[in-house]
Design a binder for these strands. Structure first.
Lengths: 164, 164
DNA sequence: GATGAAATCCGAGTCAC
DNA sequence: GTGACTCGGATTTCATC
């Protein structure tokens, strides 16, 4: 007999404490073996395996990806770009977004409320490389009225694991 | 020119074509088994294993992390915040950065050149949650003169894999 | 110095309970 | 949820180029 459990603990998310620990541990190290994971969450390997599978099936875990060090593959420069479009119509937004997703150097593209329409986060080799891409690719995107470039001088925190 | 191998191919990075394919494949799916990876890059499992280990040891692969779906764990709202500090002194920057890294909801914090000193990328439950954090935590950070908030209305691309 | 074949070891995945 | 069992992959060894 198990002492009382804590499903639906703090969120209405269908996760108990064990599920959350699995998520946090795999977020820190996606290569953890199921055996090791089981030890860390105080469950049997079989139980842990089923839990993890369920977390994937139900969409709590989206993917597992290796992180490549940008500096080591010639993408050491990070740039944030604010974009303003000519017109704020659904067609204008759609055309811009369609063009953006085809660009390989775009890490983030977010539609925002405020003085800009979009913020882009871009990785390139260096500033010279960015200037070329900016002139040849970015200002040529459909409906772009204006861009403002913010070169990143120091990456204090980049893509930190999600806390929850 | 001899048609043999292609170390030092396009970068001065010490990576040949096989290494690059390993990096790209693991970036897409960090759970690939070594056996499967070996098939995809046309190498023996032993060779592939050695290559992958070397890529970790030499820092090309920084980590493997599972991606938790933010919406499923109560972090469905994304916000970009531009920050301006009171003074542009090294001490001022250092104090701000030290305080930032202790905040759990910060995904990105980048020192930039331009109209802002820093850009923050933040995940929270909802706008109400952000307003509370903004009032209680962000404007209370050391040296903050002004913040500008950009609520993300649509995540067009978020944390895309690095192309290289 | 890097490779691939083979041999061993250990965890993933599945079963009955 | 637990324990046992099987299969396949991870990891090492070694001969070879």
């Amino acid at each position: 007999m198990k002492s009382g459990k804590q499903k639906e603990s703090s969120e209405g998310s269908g996760l108990d404490r064990t599920d959350r620990r699995i998520l946090r541990l795999l977020q820190q190290d996606g290569r953890l073996t199921n055996a090791e994971l089981a030890k860390r969450v105080n469950a049997s390997p079989a139980t842990c395996h089923r839990r993890t599978q369920r977390l994937f099936e139900e969409g709590y875990l989206r993917a597992v990806r290796a992180e490549v060090a940008p500096q080591r593959v010639g993408r050491g420069a990070l740039v944030v770009v604010g974009v303003v479009l000519d017109r704020s119509t659904p067609e204008s937004f759609a055309a811009f977004e369609k063009a953006i997703v085809a660009l390989p150097f775009i890490l983030d593209c977010h539609l925002v409320a405020g003085d800009f329409d979009y913020f882009l986060k871009i990785r390139v080799r260096d500033i010279a490389d960015f200037n070329r891409l900016h002139g040849e690719r970015l200002i040529a995107l459909p409906g772009v009225r204006q861009t403002r470039t913010f070169f990143v001088m120091k990456e204090v925190v980049d893509n930190a694991p999600l806390e929850f």
